[in-house]
Design a protein around this nucleic acid. Structure first.
Length: 423
RNA sequence: CGGGGCAUAGCGCAGUCUGGUAGCGCACCUGGUUUGGGACCAGGUGGUCGCAGGUUCAAAUCCUGCUGCCCCGACCA
């Protein structure tokens, strides 16, 4: 991508209505644009990041046997009355009517719809387990949306739903999804923990959350310092201040607890028969007896991951993307593109790296060098090479790593090798 | 929903108390000088002052109502 043809409306000025670093940086780097409270547009460079997160999650879901579908965002109220969540879900459920005054809701989640789909087909229990997922825009009418896309009303979520004939099956489906999540989060490469959690309005018996560790996180989680025990403090016993959990013995008997802040980016639930009973989702089991199915549901906040990544990885200069979800892997900063021989050399490097499968940005704008450097750092692209009047035509390029600002002189093959190594 | 605050050019703000020609910085456009860390000089474009009423010779400014947005709290995958 040529920067001169790419719409990235950056600003020098701090936005007045943002508090969180990720929110400020997403606005300043031209990733998002607000349309209403808690409702955002994704602009080109932001969308590239969002799509990369989607792609990683989609691959992991497919790898672990889930099948992608796409459900409607607008859902008839009858389904929600059937599950009794029409009233239970609360004001976060946005209700409205169509032209003939039929009641509808804007989908905050899709248990009702998936149940309605699933129960309408004749199937044998032998075809189970089945797991459907979608990546789609959800709407929850948050009491107080804030922090940009971190807690917005409209957001992109991956939601999956599994169906099994018995509890053993459910546990297997659940563990399988947990593996898929671990796969996806490992590939994204952020520091995260799996924590025991409260199931909330979604319901069910067992649930775990995936948290990205960041000081600005809204949730408190207690982590053992010497085992993999971790729990949302909501599910632990303490009398008043959660910080009193610090230093207490871990409930699994191994190590001491440490309270940290996390951003919830994934939540997996063993729902059991909560929805299948109410929505009459059943099949004949091996004894020929009608059996309500055991369901699981599994969510990942795709758009929230983008903000959480920035919360965990930024500095005073701007964003630092992990290679996995960076909008571009490398930025070729062309100083003085008005000189034909310099621009041509930049283009030749650009074409070579593009051909080897990297996402490359070429900053060919005819503007001051300082702006390019500052914007490059704010945009958080992992690597840059600078080609200008001082160093062109030497077969060696000034290669810089955004994360630690380490510079080196490398030729094109060394750069390719470095990109492979560092990703 | 309770408490607090804000709404004036694309963005950030001053002007409102004390009514009297709508301003500043950034951005944008022109020209020139610059050019490896968000340049400088000169000139220029852009606003029914959130909306609707009211008071007044006169309203961004005073009064009433409405809407939107932000912060704190309660709530929440």
């Amino acid at each position: 991508m040529y920067f001169s043809k790419f719409f990235v409306p950056t600003t020098k000025q701090e936005p007045s209505d943002a508090e969180l670093a990720s929110h400020k940086l997403m606005l300043r780097s031209g990733m998002i644009k607000k349309t209403a409270a808690g409702i955002y547009n994704w602009l080109p460079i932001g969308l590239r990041v969002l799509k990369k997160v989607e792609k990683i999650v989609r691959n992991s879901m497919n790898t672990f046997g889930a099948q992608e579908i796409l459900m409607p965002m607008v859902q008839p109220a009858e389904l929600w009355k059937e599950s009794e969540r029409y009233d239970e879900y609360g004001k976060e459920l946005l209700k409205f009517q169509d032209r003939s005054e039929r009641d509808f809701v804007l989908g905050p989640t899709h248990e009702e719809v998936i149940c309605d789909i699933f129960r309408s087909y004749p199937m044998s229990y032998k075809e189970l387990p089945v797991n459907f997922y979608q990546i789609q825009t959800k709407f929850r009418d948050e009491i107080r949306p804030r922090f940009g896309v971190m807690r917005s009303r409209e957001f992109v979520m991956k939601d999956a739903y599994s169906f099994d004939i018995n509890e053993d099956g459910l546990i297997k489906s659940y563990e399988n999804m947990k593996k898929a999540y671990i796969d996806a989060f490992n590939k994204i490469g952020l520091d995260y923990r799996i924590v025991k959690a409260d199931a909330g309005v979604i319901g069910g018996d067992v649930s775990e959350e995936f948290h990205i560790i960041a000081d600005s996180g809204e949730d408190l989680i207690a982590i053992s310092d010497s085992s993999d025990f971790a729990a949302n403090v909501e599910v632990l016993d303490y009398s008043k201040d959660p910080s009193e959990l610090n230093g207490q013995k871990s409930p699994d008997g191994v190590g001491k607890l440490q309270v940290k802040r996390g951003i919830e980016v994934g939540h997996i639930f063993q729902l059991g028969k909560k929805y299948s009973e109410k929505m009459k989702v059943s099949l004949k089991n091996e004894k020929g007896k009608e059996q309500d199915l055991f369901m699981g549901c599994y969510g990942i906040g795709i758009s929230r991951i983008v903000a959480a990544s920035i919360e965990q990885n930024h500095d005073d200069k701007g964003i630092i993307w992990p290679y996995s979800i960076a909008p571009f892997h490398l930025n070729i900063i062309c100083l003085d593109p008005s000189k034909k021989e310099i621009l041509e050399e930049c283009e030749s490097v650009y074409n070579i790296l593009k051909k080897s499968g990297h996402d490359v940005l070429l900053d060919d704008r005819d503007i001051r060098a300082g702006i390019k450097f500052t914007e490059h750092e704010m945009l958080g692209i992992p690597f840059s090479i600078i080609i200008g009047p001082n160093n062109f035509n030497k077969n060696n390029y000034e290669f810089t790593v955004r994360k630690d600002n380490i510079k080196s002189e490398l030729n094109i093959d060394e750069i390719k090798q470095k990109l492979e190594e560092l990703k």
